[in-house]
């Protein structure tokens, strides 16, 4: 593992194309840093409110019923500030800040830009804890895939083992989790299991923690997704292990290696490369499947975009959603490709 990381990091081994890519990335980051330093400050943005709006905000201060929502979103190089009242007669004012200026964003391109910033900000889950938006999607998918890979490897070894009972149990597990929908599994874990065993997921966290419900739901989701992913990964791992030629087993046996050492030192390392492409697929499927957490109150990218669509009656909300998904998918495809390349060095 250590040498793998080193290999990934060793700049000398990079191809020219990789270097160029990195230079571009660094330049983009540098430009972003400069532009983000130039954008108007939060105070400047908030000072843009019209006199009537200022008056309403002032009125709010004295009242226990707040009517004005002040939204301030800062997104790398731009920021967005809006003042909106609620109710049947809505009044809103929107501003977009970019390179030292704040622009009115109530219509036309300004409105579009403002919406993009606001929607992207919300979908990424900025300004909130890890259980929101893209952060939730990433956390859930990476953790549950990690659980899935470990569990799947054990299940695959169990399924191909000569112990008939173990093999049947593992086979049954895989059959069950592949044969039932993930959403139902999620419901069972979140609703049925606590009901049967008499606990609530939120009990895992401190009383008075306002986020306890979401954290509990996240743990339940992690378990459901991990168990489900385990079944799919098991089949991937099994297929990869069984694709390694028999001669490798024989050579190891002739040298006196035990079954477990043969698996650990010879077979599994060779099968990793063959597992990577299907595991990458599984992971990307998982990113998309993560939207099912809406069913247990968590807000991932898809749920947030649906929510925005409902409350703002806006259809361009899906544009940033698509872009965020594509960036995430591209990033992980790149990582998986690097892993695959690393493990195919010897071929």
């Amino acid at each position: 593992m250590k040498s793998f990381l080193k290999g990934l990091i060793n700049v000398k081994n990079w191809k020219k194309k990789t270097k160029v890519t990195w230079i571009i990335v660094l330049v983009v980051i540098a430009v972003c840093i400069v532009l983000s330093a130039l954008k108007p400050s939060e105070a400047d943005m908030k000072a843009m409110a019209s006199e009537e709006m200022q008056a309403m905000i002032k009125a709010d201060e004295g009242s226990s019923r707040k009517r004005v929502t002040v939204t301030y979103n800062s997104l790398i190089i731009v920021n967005y500030c809006s003042f909106s009242t609620s109710g049947a007669k809505e009044v809103t004012e929107k501003y977009v800040g970019f390179v030292g200026h704040a622009f009115q964003a109530d219509e036309g391109f300004g409105k579009f830009a403002g919406q993009m910033v606001n929607y992207t900000y919300r979908m990424l889950g900025c300004g909130e804890n890890l259980l929101h938006g893209a952060k939730l999607t990433l956390l859930l998918t990476t953790l549950s895939t990690a659980i899935g890979v470990v569990l799947g490897t054990l299940l695959a070894l169990g399924k191909i083992s000569k112990n008939k009972v173990l093999s049947k149990v593992c086979g049954g597990y895989i059959f069950f989790f592949r044969g039932t929908p993930l959403l139902i599994q999620l419901f069972v874990i979140y609703y049925s299991v606590p009901a049967i065993f008499g606990f609530a997921w939120r009990d895992l966290f401190a009383v008075g923690d306002t986020q306890a419900v979401y954290k509990g739901a996240f743990i339940a989701a992690l378990i459901a997704y991990g168990l489900n992913s385990g079944a799919y990964c098991a089949e991937i791992v099994r297929a990869a292990i069984q694709s390694i030629e028999k001669g490798q087993h024989e050579a190891a046996k002739a040298l006196g290696l035990s079954y477990s050492k043969t698996m650990r030192l010879i077979i599994i390392p060779q099968s990793v490369r063959r597992m990577v492409p299907p595991l990458c697929n599984e992971f990307i499927m998982m990113i998309k499947d993560a939207s099912m957490v809406f069913a247990i109150s968590l807000m991932d990218i898809t749920t947030i975009s649906k929510n925005i669509m409902t409350s703002e009656i806006s259809y361009i909300v899906f544009l940033p959603a698509l872009i965020i998904y594509l960036i995430i998918t591209a990033f992980f495809t790149w990582i998986f490709n690097a892993i695959e390349k690393k493990f195919s060095l010897y071929e």
Partner: peptide
């Protein structure tokens, strides 16, 4: 890169309306 992907600059303060 991660922060670019995560998209957000600094964590902004909770909007005024949220506190009350």
């Amino acid at each position: 890169c991660a922060s670019v992907i995560a998209g957000c600059g600094n964590k902004t303060e909770a909007p005024a309306a949220q506190e009350p």
